[in-house]
Design a protein around this nucleic acid. Structure first.
Lengths: 181, 181
DNA sequence: CAATTAATCGACAAAGTGTCAATTAGATAA
DNA sequence: TTATCTAATTGACACTTTGTCGATTAATTG
């Protein structure tokens, strides 16, 4: 699923791709006028040639997509419940999830505008919520509210939290979310 | 705040602007490739001349903005609690809000991708939630969870609901939301 | 060092943008 | 109905952006 499977990749390519990614992020983070977000502006910021961009990406969308895949792969490993052990797996996953976002708040604030990214974060949340509620055996109480509703409301909260500059700590927010369920 | 304040507006202008708006919506609703969404493609769909577009709008963003303003003005009137009377104002507003979205699901599904639109819908929800919780005097219980958290989670739920093709009825969803609080 | 391949550069056609003056056609009021 | 406004159309313009080339320079690896 990921790129970078053991095969050695030319350090020039690594560097170049990193430069383009950093360039795009920095432009997006400073609310760069979207209508002026051109391949040329990204190449300028990366201090690379415009033609080099097309050596690696089809267009700006493609660059964005690749970045999203990398970010999500990384996050998915972070919240992987196999890494945690005793205590509530669901809650632990939620806190890991929020902490990971907290560490990369700027990036996530930008990424969450992307519809595909939101969809995939939603899927992750759905997994976490299902896990947590299975443990709690809320199933016995016939699931008054569906997992989808919990997951989507959590995504709403996270979106707001990031946009407001992460006003609460990840663990406090996790508690607020859990309290709400 | 709105346009159209009593002054008679040339019917040709009304018609033309309506055509452009309908054209943009129809293109967006059929998931028209965003990178091919040009002024020309909108003018083609509207069966109007490209130059005519510039007679009314600065660019595509401007058209989008004007559409958002109209949709939000309309929605704001719909949920205006002054129009409702007895019973819980907050709950009535929430149901009106959801019903209005339900009636224009296709349009909202497209609009909710817009950051500015989301921000303004959030503000409306914050008003509704504040109103509802004031009535309930949840304040006495020291607001375990803030209004912002409720509003943002509601926005998350609504976004999911629309994206999934409004699987529940507005009143059922309103109950689920209220139950969660 | 030599072989390989990434990055740069200049150039190109194609498409999109925003604006314009001149013209056509529709709305409105006398 | 006719005369007057003014919206819409049309073709054209300079300009920007896109995506792709072949030729060249520079970095990596064995």
């Amino acid at each position: 699923m990921s790129t970078n499977n053991q095969i050695k990749v030319d350090p020039r390519i690594k560097r170049t791709k990193r430069m383009f990614k950093e360039a795009l992020i920095s432009l997006l983070e400073e609310n760069y006028d979207r209508s002026k977000l051109t391949v040329q502006s990204i190449a300028d910021r990366a201090e690379l040639n415009r033609a080099t961009f097309y050596l690696h990406y089809r267009d700006i969308e493609d660059l964005m997509e690749q970045m999203i895949n990398e970010v999500l792969d990384e996050m998915y490993q972070t919240i992987n419940p196999l890494s945690q052990d005793n205590l509530s797996l669901g809650k632990a996953s939620l806190i890991s999830f929020l902490e990971h976002i907290y560490q990369h708040a700027g990036l996530f604030n930008v990424m969450l505008e992307n519809k595909d990214f939101r969809k995939r974060v939603f899927s992750m949340l759905l997994e976490i919520v299902s896990l947590w509620r299975e443990e709690r055996k809320v199933k016995g109480r016939s699931f008054q509210v569906s997992n989808e509703i919990i997951a989507s409301s959590t995504l709403g909260i996270v979106t707001w939290w990031i946009q407001e500059g992460t006003p609460y700590s990840p663990s406090y927010l996790a508690n607020q979310i859990i309290k709400m369920v």
